[in-house]
Nucleic acid binder design. Structure first.
Lengths: 152, 152
DNA sequence: TTACATGCAAATGATTTGCAGGGAC
DNA sequence: GTCCCTGCAAATCATTTGCATGTAA
């Protein structure tokens, strides 16, 4: 799916929900989809304003809420109080490994893990909406550095 | 490990860190270890005050920080902005399913999932310190209720 | 004695909300 | 013409911090 198609998909979703498709929302969605990085609400605000200067912080939060509920964007808590979001549409589901030394994020996916999660949920009569698996540890490149030179 | 032994273990850890073992800290740790429920900082404050009335909110947060860093307690974000903690010492590792309707938390464990995580980490040259797997969805009892009566 | 710990209240920082005007449909 | 959406600034809410005082070691 190319960027314009993705945008169209989102616009269609908003309208189908009875939500209006405004210039601000388009700017925010364009900014969010312009990268696959893990961004904060504040960063998204800054990028949105590059696309369209008349975007307020409140609107970014309000739009992020709709995008997240619709599954276009996924939020993961950054560990430091704030949250980070990532563009999901058109990207396969994956989990994350977070390096506690340099903050690097490695994405991975394991079909067997997904299958076992579904089995566990079924066993408990639980219907899955989404899940979050994060592994914290030290990444390859930090493992190579002597302790004293780590973090970077 | 019985409760008194656990308390002794924690006290020893505090002293080994050069931290002082105070009446407030003991009260907080007793309160935290008195249950295996998932409690908020505010709830822990209330329980700590039942044990020892002269405990302040600030001290609860400060103590929770030490306990978490030492691995005696584990924090999980409740999804609703706040965090919940659980008593870890002497309990086997497990993952969580969180009901998005009523907030219920179900614990589960799957050896195969753990094994595949280790394999994935190894593949990426990543050394695991800890991990967090949470499945969000609707629990058995909420699944039984008609949509309109949910949340409770 | 001497740091470290504590309570209090004020500060923080991310996120949410009330409200009056603006704009999509 | 309706309602939903927006910006703004004020309000929340969980958590952290500054400071004067208390206290473990």
């Amino acid at each position: 799916m190319n960027p314009e198609q993705e945008l169209e998909t989102v616009a269609r979703h908003f309208r189908a929900q009875g939500c209006r498709w405004t210039a601000q929302r388009e700017g925010i969605v364009r900014a969010a989809f312009a990268t696959h990085d893990h961004f904060t609400a504040e960063e998204l605000l800054a990028h949105s304003r590059e696309v369209d200067p008349r975007v307020s912080r409140a609107t970014v939060y309000r739009t992020l809420l709709v995008l997240e509920q619709a599954g276009f964007v996924e939020g993961l808590d950054a560990g430091d109080g704030g949250r980070r979001f990532e563009h999901v549409l058109g990207h396969a589901h994956h989990d994350h490994m977070v390096c506690t030394q340099c903050g690097a994020i490695v994405e991975f996916h394991d079909a067997e893990i997904e299958a076992r999660q579904e089995a566990a949920a079924k066993e408990h009569g639980f219907s899955i909406e989404r899940h979050s698996l994060r592994i914290y540890g030290v990444c390859r490149s930090c493992n190579k550095k002597p302790r004293s030179r780590r973090r970077g």
